[in-house]
Amino acid sequence: MDGDQKNRLKEGFLVKKGHVRTNWRTRWFVLFNDAVAYYKKKDDDFAAGAVLLQGCSVLSPCLQYTKKKSVFKLSARDGTELLMQASNDNERDEWVKAIGETIRACSISSSDNTAMPKLTEAQVKRNKDIIQAMQDPDAGIRLMTKTLDGSSHKDCFSGAELVDWLLKWSLAQSREDAISKASDLVTAAHLQPLVKCRSLANCQQILLDEPQAFYKFSAFHMSAIKALIPSSDESDSSNDSDSSESIPRTSSSSQITVKSFKGNGGKIVKQGFMMKRGHMRHTWKARLFVLFNEPPYLVYFRGSKAGDEKPLGEIQLRWCKVDIVDASQDKSDLTLKNKQRQNLFCVTTQKGKVYLFQTNSVEERTEWMRAIMSPNDIA
């Protein structure tokens, strides 16, 4: 993938399910203006894989994996699926929103829609209201698994079902009005047809002429877990070779019980991914960090382990010292080989042990430093 910074819309660590071994591994993800790419390491020049976003659909949360938290799914038009897990629900929602907007932008910009009139402000608002209603857990449109050209597609619906749903809930005054409103949703790329179209206008015609054509949401945000309870054959199965791996629950009210914690199980005040330098080999690894207060301590995981599993390490923070690190300056106690590393900071414990971290941005570094220095203020 092109590493041009101007094309990078969002990036960060996510845990990805493998396609072959079906295990979960931490990868560095980058959202470009036309694709999502993932890398084995943050600084790799070449991506380990990528999904072109035109015609894709992103769904959150992914209810097929109820044992895992903060999972979302990206589905391509050919049925290929990419399952990803964020460190918390807020981070998941940010990724889904960014990916969904990019999918829509790709679909609109790549289509020859010059012959279609531009939607008015009222139509834009109406489309958003209809999409929100369609995704309602109680009254929304029913999502099904459909078969098209021998491929199975989950979480989709037909044009005829959409028209009938609009009429059922009096969101359209007549069948012609329902078809018109459904066409507007396709025009605005809120919906993705499972057939490849030369233009959005062509997709409109398909909606009119082929009511059994199937569609997906560009971005589906489920508002409640009770919607669309998965069937037994779609739930998280035992053939997952690493099914025990899961990121701990990450909201501030969550409780993580780990028997090896030396603290008293205080409140979680912050958590997320950071790079950490090893003490022996000085290699950098992505780790999931959880910050507790009372007493203050920082726990880190491999990045895809369940909350009840032993962490990789714990850092006692009482009377610690937190400092910004400039890699370009020569510091003998840190011996940084790569002078280009940015957004570094270190924590020196009361006993003098030094931990070195790297964040994705200056703002994120400031947030972590402030939280570590005053965890009770954050809580």
Rank of each mutant, 00 (worst) to 15 (best):
Leu83Asp: 01
Asp93Met: 06
Gly79Ala: 08
Gln85Arg: 02
Ser87Gly: 13
Gln85Leu: 03
Pro61Tyr: 10
Gly79Asn: 11
Ser75Asp: 12
Tyr65Gln: 10
Ser75Trp: 01
Val96Ile: 09
Arg77Gln: 12
Arg92Asn: 10
Phe72Ile: 02
Thr66Met: 07
Lys97Phe: 08
Asp93Gly: 00
Thr80Lys: 13
Asn90Val: 07
Val71Glu: 07
Arg77Trp: 08
Trp95Phe: 00
Leu82Ala: 05
Lys69Tyr: 13
Lys69Ala: 10
Lys69Glu: 15
Leu82Asp: 01
Pro61Thr: 14
Leu63Glu: 10
Val96Phe: 01
Asn90Pro: 01
Leu74Arg: 02
Ala76Ile: 06
Lys67Pro: 03
Ser70Met: 06
Gln64Arg: 09
Thr80Val: 12
Met84Phe: 15
Ser87Arg: 01
Ser87Thr: 05
Lys67Val: 07
Pro61Gln: 13
Thr80Arg: 13
Gln85Tyr: 02
Asn88Ser: 12
Asn90Thr: 13
Asp93Gln: 14
Leu83Gly: 02
Ala76Val: 08
Lys97Ala: 08
Ser75Met: 11
Leu82Met: 10
Thr80Gln: 14
Asn90Phe: 04
Val71Cys: 13
Tyr65Trp: 12
Ser87Met: 06
Glu94Leu: 08
Phe72Gly: 01
Gly79Ser: 10
Glu94Gly: 03
Lys69Val: 08
Ser70Cys: 13
Ser75Arg: 02
Lys97Glu: 11
Glu81Gly: 00
Asp93His: 06
Leu63Val: 11
Glu81Thr: 05
Met84His: 00
Ala86Glu: 04
Asp89Gln: 13
Thr66Asn: 09
Lys73Ser: 14
Thr66Leu: 12
Glu94Thr: 06
Val96Gln: 04
Lys69Asp: 14
Arg77Ile: 11
Met84Gly: 00
Asp78Ala: 06
Asp78Thr: 09
Val96Leu: 03
Cys62Gln: 14
Ser87Lys: 05
Arg92Ala: 11
Ala76Gly: 12
Thr80Ala: 12
Ser75Tyr: 03
Glu81Gln: 09
Leu82Cys: 02
Gly79Gln: 11
Leu74Asp: 06
Arg77Thr: 13
Tyr65Val: 03
Asp78Glu: 08
Ser70Gly: 07
Thr66Glu: 14
Leu83Ala: 03
Tyr65Ala: 01
Leu63Pro: 00
Tyr65Asn: 08
Ala76Asn: 12
Asp89Leu: 08
Ser87Trp: 03
Thr66Arg: 13
Glu81Leu: 05
Glu91Pro: 05
Tyr65Ile: 04
Glu81His: 00
Arg92Gly: 04
Gln64Asn: 12
